[in-house]
Simulated assay, not measured.
Amino acid sequence: MKFLKGELFNGPGGLSLGAKNAGFVHPETGEEWKIEHLWSNDYDSNACKTFGLNICGDENDESVHVGPVENLPIGDKSILGDIDCFAFGFPCNDYSNVGEKKGLEGTFGPLYSYGVKVLKLYQPKFFVAENVGGLQSANEGNAFIKILTELEEAGYNLTPHLYKFEEYGIPQARHRIIIVGIRNDLYEKGIKFKVPAPTTLASTDYKTSRDAILEPPIPEDAPNHEMPKHTKKVQEMLSYIPAGENAWYLGIPEELRLNVKGARLSSIYKRLDPNRPAYTVTGSGGGGTHMYHWSENRALTNRERARLQTFPDDFVFLGSKEAVRKQIGMAVPPEGAKIVFNAILKTFAGIEVRVK
């Protein structure tokens, strides 16, 4: 049983890798259940090359359409073939709790509507949509209600849930809203998705940043593993910051402290706590926001950040170091996505899923 997938805002391929790695052989029928990529789109050319290389086997694969979603010929099945399922991690910039939270009034906020357009024109059996937790509160909660209403009106029964990925074996405190939609006619026939139960209930059993980065050790020749360079002052300042603390730690000598007025972001020069999941990996690239090793006086490499996002070491990100850092931070953790897609496939296959 094969589901062909279309995707908007594909990024480097976190959702798609999760979908690709999901699947199973039905224990009773022997039938293989899986999801295969058919087409996708993103405006970021570096992300599209990364996606093409790792998901399709060719960085210039023609099924990955580069450019603004506004220019994509949605509905033209001679270009974008017919699909059985659909995924879209619509841009979160205007919904994030870090930033101006313009929501639907922002540049990126309304782009979810192209996902709704795909659903109306293709009517896939199911879809998966992903965004930041801040979506719930954007525009005083009205944005979330509007988006859910339009997805329902496209013909789907919805199961929105705020997934706390550290509860699912991901070595990172990453909280994201994932909306699973089952087409109404299939829902009425008994295909009713339920949120899969967390795999790790006790916080003492969460996978830690140390587990992710050190076990097993990252090969020296792993891609995207170039060591960052810092000024002597930054290295000296980091030497005074304990694990889990940041640039505002009181033990930093006055001459090494940052001269910042106003709001002080907690993530600035923040070291990981090796005994806990990492704080959220982001795509931002400003000074001091690159995530910092708990004991070495440096930022993480992109490969270490990719490990926190559960990308395998042979997943190659293309582009400059800054472009790669952005791709990694904006991605959905593949291992988290895999859990959701597996739960959907099992629902369709009539296999019981342990639910929340």
Results as ranks from 00 to 15, higher is better:
M1K: 14
G6N: 07
E7G: 08
N10S: 14
G13M: 02
G14Q: 07
N21D: 14
A22M: 07
G23I: 01
F24E: 08
V25K: 14
P27S: 05
T29W: 01
E31K: 13
K34R: 13
K34Y: 12
I35M: 11
N41C: 14
N41P: 08
A47Y: 05
A47Q: 03
K49F: 00
G57E: 01
S63L: 07
S63T: 15
P68S: 14
V69F: 04
N71C: 09
G75W: 08
K77I: 15
I79M: 14
D82Q: 14
D84F: 10
D84T: 10
F86P: 12
G89N: 01
C92E: 04
Y95F: 15
K101F: 01
K101T: 02
K102Q: 15
G106E: 08
G106S: 10
G106R: 11
T107W: 01
F108C: 13
F108W: 13
G109L: 06
P110I: 12
L111G: 03
Y112G: 06
S113P: 00
G115T: 07
L121G: 04
F126A: 10
F126Y: 15
V132T: 12
V132P: 05
S137I: 11
N142T: 15
A143R: 08
A143T: 10
I145S: 11
L148A: 01
L148M: 15
L148E: 11
T149I: 00
E150Q: 13
L151S: 03
L151W: 12
G155P: 03
G155Q: 06
H161S: 10
F165H: 10
E166D: 13
I177D: 04
I177E: 02
I178R: 11
I178Y: 14
I178N: 09
G181N: 05
R183D: 08
N184W: 01
D185S: 11
D185E: 13
L186C: 08
K192A: 00
F193C: 01
K194A: 11
T199R: 05
T204G: 04
R210N: 12
I213Q: 04
P217A: 13
P219V: 09
P223V: 07
V234S: 08
L238N: 07
L238E: 09
S239V: 08
E245A: 13
N246R: 05
I252M: 09
L258I: 13
K261P: 02
S267A: 12
K270V: 06
N275V: 01
A278C: 14
A278W: 03
T280L: 06
V281H: 01
G283Y: 08
G283M: 09
T289G: 09
T289V: 10
H290F: 04
M291D: 01
M291K: 09
W294P: 15
N297T: 00
L300S: 05
L300G: 07
T301R: 04
E304F: 10
R307W: 04
L318A: 01
K321V: 14
E322G: 00
A323D: 05
V324H: 03
R325P: 02
Q327D: 02
V332R: 03
P334L: 06
P334R: 08
N342T: 07
N342L: 04
A343K: 05
I344V: 15
L345H: 09
K346T: 02
T347V: 07
F348W: 01
F348D: 05
E352C: 06
